[in-house]
Design a protein around this nucleic acid. Structure first.
Length: 277
DNA sequence: ACGAGGTCCTGCGAGC
DNA sequence: TGCTCGCAGGACCTCG
C-alpha cells in the first residue's frame, strides 16, 4: 500500500528511465481510473510530449511534460509503476491500466489489481489547486518542529487520524502512522490537543525517522507493493507493530493489541508503552 | 466540526 | 473440496 516511502522509491527509480523520453504508443486498458480527463485527450497529450520531470507529492507520482501538463498517478492500494527492461512474464501483463514503450525494449507500465488507483491530467492551474489540497511534505528541508505542531493544532481528533489526514500532513498512511506512534510511545487514540510538548517532540522525531528509514529500505512490501524496477521493498523486516498484533512488544514484551476503532483502520499498539501524554 | 458509514475494487484466508 | 463472507485501506462522499 504505497505511502510516502514507497512512492518516493518508485519515483527515484522511474526518474532516470523516464526523464527526457516520450511515452511511445501509449495504451489505456481501463478508463474508470481517469479523473477529469478523457482517454482520447490523455493519450494525445502523452504522444505529443516529452517527460521533463518525475516527482512525488504526498502519495502520488507526478510526471511533468514539456507542454506544462502533469499526469498524476495515485497507486492507492495495489497500484504499481514499473519500467521493465525485458520482456514481461504472462503474470506481469495482468491488470495493466496504462502502458507505453520507451524504446530500446523498455516498457513503462501502471498496473493495478483492484483499480482503486486514479490517473489525472492537469494543466498549471489544475496542478496548483491539486497540490494545495495537501499538507506539508514531512521530508522537506523546511519541515521543522513548529510546522509539525501546526499540523496537529485546531482539532481534538485522535492523533493517528490526524497523522493520516493528507490535508494536514502529506504522505503518512496506516503503516507509518502505527510505526511512528509506537516509536514515540504515544497512544494512537489520544486527541492531539492532549499531547504535551515532549510527546509532540517525540512524535515529530519518530515520523521523520520512520519515513527516512523506510525510504532507505525502499519501502514496505506486505503483498502488492513493488519498486519502480519491480522488486520488493525491505522495510517489512523492520516493522515494530504494523501487522504484528498478538506478538510481543519489541520494547517491553507485552502482547501487542490490534483495534479498528480509530477511523476503521487496523491500529496495532502496545498498551503498556503507548500510554504517555 | 465531528463521527459514522458507504463507495470503489479484487484477492485471499478463515470458517463451515 | 467448494462455497460464502469479511477484510485489506486510501481518498472521497453523504448524512445526522
Amino acid at each position: 500500500m504505497p505511502e510516502l516511502p514507497e512512492v518516493e522509491t518508485i519515483v527515484r527509480e522511474l526518474r532516470p528511465a523516464l526523464v527526457g523520453h516520450t511515452l511511445l504508443h501509449p495504451r489505456l486498458h481501463a478508463t474508470d481510473v481517469l479523473r477529469g480527463v478523457s482517454a482520447a485527450r490523455l493519450l494525445a497529450t502523452l504522444r505529443a510530449n516529452r517527460i521533463v520531470e518525475v516527482s512525488r507529492r504526498a502519495k502520488h507520482v507526478v510526471m511533468q511534460f514539456a507542454s506544462g501538463h502533469r499526469m498524476i498517478i495515485q497507486p492507492r492500494m495495489t497500484g504499481v509503476l514499473i519500467v521493465y527492461a525485458r520482456r514481461r512474464l504472462p503474470e506481469e501483463r495482468r491488470y495493466v491500466v496504462l502502458e507505453a514503450s520507451l524504446g530500446h525494449g523498455r516498457t513503462f507500465v501502471f498496473q493495478d489489481v483492484r483499480r482503486l488507483g486514479t490517473v489525472w491530467l492537469l494543466d498549471e492551474a489544475g496542478w496548483r489547486s491539486y497540490t494545495a489540497r495537501f499538507g506539508p511534505e514531512p521530508l522537506a528541508d523546511d519541515f521543522d518542529f513548529a510546522r509539525f505542531e501546526a499540523c496537529l493544532r485546531g482539532t481534538r481528533q485522535a492523533t493517528k487520524k490526524v497523522l493520516m489526514d493528507q490535508r494536514r500532513l502529506a504522505g503518512v498512511g496506516n503503516i507509518y502512522a502505527n510505526e511512528a506512534l509506537f516509536r514515540a510511545r504515544v497512544d494512537p487514540s489520544r486527541p492531539t490537543d492532549r499531547l504535551d510538548r515532549a510527546a509532540r517532540r517525540r512524535l515529530y522525531r519518530a515520523v521523520l525517522d520512520v519515513l527516512v528509514e523506510a525510504v532507505e529500505h525502499r519501502g514496505t512490501t506486505v503483498r502488492d507493493y513493488r519498486t519502480g524496477t519491480g522488486e520488493r521493498g525491505e522495510h517489512q523486516e523492520a516493522l515494530d507493530v504494523y501487522g504484528r498484533g498478538g506478538e510481543p512488544c519489541a520494547r517491553c514484551g507485552t502482547r501487542l493489541a490490534t483495534t479498528h476503532v480509530i477511523d476503521g483502520r487496523a491500529t496495532t499498539f502496545c498498551f503498556r508503552c503507548q500510554g504517555e501524554p
